[in-house]
């Protein structure tokens, strides 16, 4: 039996380095895989430009079209709630920022803990709602494969272990904190090779969509 403290030190140390390395190299590989495929030059006379419409679409796609929202409110609301909850807990929780500051030498102001706590709860509820939606909504059901469940679990584990650790709900504390860190390492290792990659590639996708439309004088 390993001691909780040893476990914590291990996940904090060499395992963390391994996870970060896989994460960074994996992302570089994925971007290379995509960009190396290239795109042939469009020879048709342009009606509009590419760059600005591309950037515009990156921003505007964050909001749903009204009719689509009315038809699928649960997907959209659950999507927003868990993404916002996740992001707030990840980047505005003071201990996370402190960790970042220790590693990289700079940080940013965080939010008071009770607010982050509420965001985390929303994030967890949003994720559960999204899962329920995935299981029951016929369109999502037909699209869903094992990878979708895998990425759900990978996203859920850091949230729930983080929540349990913050509220000291598991004893001993080093064990739950270690599990929290381990779950993040799992997330990082799988990240580049699963749909979690959308976090980064959606900027490419939106840009291509907006740019190709913009060239034709269409706002997309």
């Amino acid at each position: 039996m390993i001691e909780p403290m040893d476990f914590l030190l291990w996940v904090r140390g060499s395992l963390f380095d391994v996870a970060v390395t896989v994460f960074v190299i994996g992302i570089i590989i994925r971007f290379f895989e995509i960009l190396s495929l290239g795109r042939s030059k469009d020879l048709a006379e342009a009606k509009g430009t590419e760059f600005v419409p591309g950037i515009k679409t990156i921003i505007t796609r964050t909001l749903p079209e009204q009719g689509t929202f009315k038809r699928q409110p649960l997907t959209i609301i659950a999507g927003y709630v868990f993404h916002v909850g996740l992001l707030v807990s990840l980047v505005l929780f003071i201990p996370h920022i402190e960790l970042f500051r220790q590693t990289f030498g700079f940080g940013w102001p965080g939010l008071p803990n009770p607010i982050v706590d509420a965001a985390a709860v929303l994030g967890i509820v949003g994720l559960l709602a999204a899962l329920w939606n995935r299981i029951t909504n016929p369109v999502m059901k037909i699209l869903t494969d094992n990878e979708d469940y895998l990425v759900w679990v990978l996203t859920f584990l850091p949230m729930i272990t983080g929540y349990l650790a913050y509220h000291r709900m598991v004893n001993p504390y080093p064990l739950i904190l270690g599990l929290h860190i381990l779950s993040i390492e799992l997330l990082m290792v799988f990240f580049p090779f699963t749909k979690l990659m959308h976090t980064f590639t959606l900027f490419l996708a939106r840009w291509y969509n907006g740019a190709m439309s913009g060239r034709r004088g269409v706002e997309s």
Binding site: L37, R39, V139, K195, M197, H198, L204
Partner: peptide, 14 residues
């Protein structure tokens, strides 16, 4: 590249 970016980004949201 656009096709690869699109497939990489789909989150099966329906």
């Amino acid at each position: 590249a656009p096709v690869a970016a699109f497939f990489s980004s789909c989150v099966s949201c329906g």
